[in-house]
Amino acid sequence: MLRHKGKGRTYSHNLKLASLLSGVAGMVNICGVFALGTLTTNVTGHFAYFAETLFLQDFSTALVFMVYILFFLLGAFVSGLLTESVSGRFHTAYVMPLALEIVILCAVTAFGEIYYGTDRSPIGALACALLFAMGLQNALVTRVSQSVVRTTHLTGLFTDLGIELAQRLIYRGNTERTRLRKSIFLKLMIIIGFFFGGIAGGYLYQYLQLRALLLPVVVLLFTLGYDELLFRFYRLKRKLRSKAT
């Protein structure tokens, strides 16, 4: 899912990646809404609130929304920096952003358990941490899939989906219709993954509060583990085949 790039990357890789990590984004987003009262997977809404509070001359609140925006940007920047710094060893490039995302989600869970609901509850800091983590994830997935997959927000996705559904009705060539069918299905899987991630995260939050963030951690660990096990399996298979010949 994550190791392959360029011509070695297939539709199946993007489909698996989209399904898993869009679910992660949905879970993180709903936990952020319930626990912190803010969206944590995109910055569109934060820009609107920033403009509103700036107009109302509530400069301290406007500053908070600007910080949220900058932390998402910072996450994307750090993800790009980590990935590019080891671009010659791409098989490990994806590990660092996802590992950092796992650490952040675990830290938010831990600090949330200690301070959430108290007078010292660091809601702003926790929101910044989740926005940073989602910036990390979105930048990594965008780069790995060559901008085919984005998992943390749906606005552009619904726009592209609407365009492609219209093209599906108009185009008659088999090649073009096949391409559109695959692209539409991929986008639907991202939407479904985000939706069911939100449902699962919301359900767990009722019982676990911020500990519900451990579920996306499990999904991220599975993603890394699956990729590594599959890589080792195919490498062993090639070795056995070469010995047999």
Score class of each variant (00 low, 15 high):
A110T: 15
L36A: 09
S85F: 05
F47T: 13
E228I: 10
V95A: 05
G193I: 01
V64W: 00
G135T: 08
K243M: 12
G112C: 05
Y115S: 11
G135R: 03
F222K: 05
H13E: 11
F196W: 04
K7R: 14
L140Y: 00
T44H: 04
F55G: 10
E84M: 09
L213K: 08
T61I: 11
V141R: 01
S145C: 12
L17W: 00
M66R: 08
I199Y: 06
F231H: 14
N29A: 04
T155A: 13
A244I: 04
S19I: 15
A110H: 13
T61K: 13
I170L: 15
L230I: 04
S87N: 13
L2R: 06
E228G: 06
A35R: 00
Q206A: 15
L54A: 14
D227Q: 08
T151L: 08
T118V: 06
V95G: 02
N29C: 05
F71K: 02
R235G: 00
R181G: 15
L208T: 14
L230N: 11
R177S: 12
G112V: 03
I190H: 00
Y203V: 10
E52H: 07
A200I: 12
M27K: 00
Y11T: 09
A200Q: 06
S22L: 10
G75P: 04
F50L: 12
T142C: 10
K182C: 05
T10C: 09
Y205M: 04
Q137V: 04
E52G: 07
R143I: 05
G225W: 03
L70S: 13
G117R: 15
T83I: 08
T92V: 15
N174A: 13
P216I: 01
P216S: 12
V95D: 04
Q209R: 05
I192L: 15
A129H: 01
Y171V: 14
I192F: 10
L21M: 12
P216K: 02
V103E: 02
T53E: 15
Q146R: 13
F55M: 07
N138E: 05
A18P: 01
D58V: 13
K243N: 13
D58A: 14
L82M: 14
F196L: 11
L154Q: 09
F196D: 03
R177E: 12
A51I: 07
L180G: 05
S183M: 04
L161W: 01
L220E: 00
H91R: 15
A133Q: 04
G201R: 02
D58S: 15
T223F: 00
A133S: 15
S85E: 11
L213V: 10
V217H: 03
L17D: 02
A129G: 06
K187F: 12
T41I: 09
C31E: 01
G173L: 07
A129D: 04
F50Q: 04
L70A: 14
A139Q: 09
K5L: 08
I191F: 06
A129I: 02
A212P: 07
K187Q: 15
T175S: 15
G26C: 07
L39F: 11
L180V: 07
Y68Q: 05
R235M: 02
F185I: 08
F111N: 09
T118F: 03
E84K: 11
G37P: 12
